[in-house]
């Protein structure tokens, strides 16, 4: 027989466990309505960098040339990540289940196949405007 450890949640609910028939406020609600619930974007870490993805403006197009020179020269840009830097995409459903075939690159190689497909990723000191260069 499972022993009910009422002491564990003692400060969060009545000891009598009579919950049915009355409303229960969610624990995170106060944070939500006061804007104090922390989200991913609210973290400020020491030395935190920001990554911005440059995406295709075209539904289907050949990538003849990706010119990142301007981005690389921009103030505050630490690194420009190109497709060749991430040859294997470890994060597709197929690769996660070890399907073997991996035909969805993290960053587009040679060709973009949908509008919004990632082409390069720019790592910078701040989110404020990493530069954008659209390929043809």
């Amino acid at each position: 027989m499972l022993e009910l450890r009422k002491d564990i949640f003692a400060d969060e609910r009545d000891d009598n466990l009579k919950e049915i028939g009355k409303g229960t406020q969610r624990q995170d609600m106060l944070g939500h309505v006061t804007g104090t619930s922390p989200y991913f974007d609210d973290h400020k870490l020491q030395g935190m960098l920001h990554l911005k993805v440059v995406r295709s403006a075209h539904p289907h197009a050949r990538l003849r040339r990706v010119d990142t020179s301007e981005a690389e020269r921009s103030q505050g840009v630490r690194r420009v990540i190109r497709a060749s830097d991430v040859p294997r995409n470890l994060n597709t459903l197929l690769s996660l289940i070890n399907f073997g075939k991996d035909d969805e690159p993290s960053l587009a190689v040679d060709k973009v196949r949908y509008k919004g497909e990632p082409i390069v990723a720019i790592v910078a000191d701040s989110r404020a405007r990493p530069t954008r260069r659209l390929p043809r």
């Binding site: 995170d28 609600m29 944070g31 939500h32 309505v33 619930s37 989200y39």
Partner: peptide, 11 residues
């Protein structure tokens, strides 16, 4: 908002 469950993730 709190009483009417008008927030789930709250974002």
């Amino acid at each position: 908002f709190a009483d009417n469950f008008a927030a789930q993730c709250g974002y």
